[in-house]
């Protein structure tokens, strides 16, 4: 599957107040980044369920990004602190079943960090592109397609 034309699908789950707004800022500042990312806006990183990440892979994502406000900046006081603790556990679980840090990414991007958003997206898009399609997970999907 080392197709040179491979373009990764990146799914991003972002909080409304920081990262989504930071991505808006990247837009208003006309910064450019790779177009592989598809973003889903939720109010807070606290809302981001590990199920979302699983479902993204089931839907064919090659990489998943979870991003929100920096610690202490949460619009809802502590949503990102709870999220962080959840991610610490979930990330280790994913690693243990063979889904490594080059498939799932986490970042803090504030409303003023349009540039950081651009860098994060470019960086993870490159990482996932180099890594190639998430064949492992897509093989799990395959069987499902056969069975309908």
């Amino acid at each position: 599957m080392s197709d040179s034309k491979f373009e990764p699908k990146i799914m991003a789950f972002v909080c409304n107040w920081c990262t989504y707004t930071g991505a808006d800022l990247a837009g208003t500042s006309r910064m450019k980044y790779q177009s592989n990312v598809r973003m889903i806006r939720v109010p807070c990183t606290g809302r981001i369920d590990p199920m979302f990440i699983i479902k993204a892979f089931e839907s064919g994502a090659d990489g998943v990004l979870v991003s929100g406000c920096h610690p202490g900046d949460c619009h809802y006081t502590a949503g990102n602190f709870h999220a962080r603790r959840r991610w610490i556990l979930f990330r280790q679980l994913l690693k243990f079943v063979g889904i490594d840090d080059d498939r799932v990414f986490f970042s803090w991007v504030s409303a003023s960090e349009g540039k950081k958003w651009v860098d994060v997206i470019n960086e993870i898009t490159d990482t996932v592109r180099t890594k190639g399609p998430f064949v492992n997970y897509q093989n799990l999907n395959k069987e499902f397609t056969l069975n309908g």
Binding site: F81, H82, R84, R85, R86, F106, W108, V120
Partner: peptide, 16 residues
């Protein structure tokens, strides 16, 4: 409980 609480100093070396 572990989930349901947090520490502002929880490790985050994996977060960009």
């Amino acid at each position: 409980t572990l989930i349901g609480t947090y520490d502002v100093k929880d490790k985050e070396d994996f977060i960009r």
